[in-house]
């Protein structure tokens, strides 16, 4: 399934591009999510075997040699957990943005966008 792998790598590059070029904090998180999905797609596509079925055994598959009938179950198991971790990490990042915007003091004179990364200069060097 080489096409899916290529698509996954394109999504990874796209996600990195989004994280590097976007100024809006939420768009950076979206870039991270796209990178995440790309990695999942690559890992799952590596376990795919042509013309094989899902690794859930029923009597038909069991009848003729189960291990020659199914795709590789290990990448699916890894991605299953990675998706949930991705969800939790995204939620943590969004919370961090909310807290950053809430606790930061913006002067009313200089009209800075609180959601733009350029408004936060404390750690800049």
């Amino acid at each position: 399934m080489i096409l899916t792998t290529v698509l996954g790598f394109i999504l990874i590059i796209l996600g990195i591009w989004g994280m590097l070029t976007q100024k809006n904090l939420f768009k950076m998180v979206i870039g991270f999510s796209i990178l995440d999905s790309g990695i999942h797609l690559v890992i799952v596509s590596l376990g795919y075997i042509k013309d094989k079925t899902a690794p859930i055994i029923d009597s038909d598959i069991l009848a003729n040699n189960a291990s020659s009938q199914v795709v590789d179950p290990i990448p699916s198991a890894l991605v299953l957990t990675a998706i949930v971790i991705g969800l939790a990490v995204t939620a943590l990042m969004l919370t961090y943005i909310i807290q950053l915007v809430n606790t930061h003091n913006f002067d009313s004179k200089n009209m800075k966008d609180p959601l733009s990364i350029t408004s936060y200069e404390e750690l800049k060097w």
């Binding site: 042509k50 690794p55 199914v70």
Partner: peptide, 21 residues
């Protein structure tokens, strides 16, 4: 990407998992 070859059968670890499970 260029070195990925599509699998034609399960690798030994996956095979063992399928049979043992």
């Amino acid at each position: 990407l260029s070195e990925i070859k599509p699998l034609s059968q399960l690798n030994p670890l996956a095979k063992r998992y399928v049979e043992d499970s």
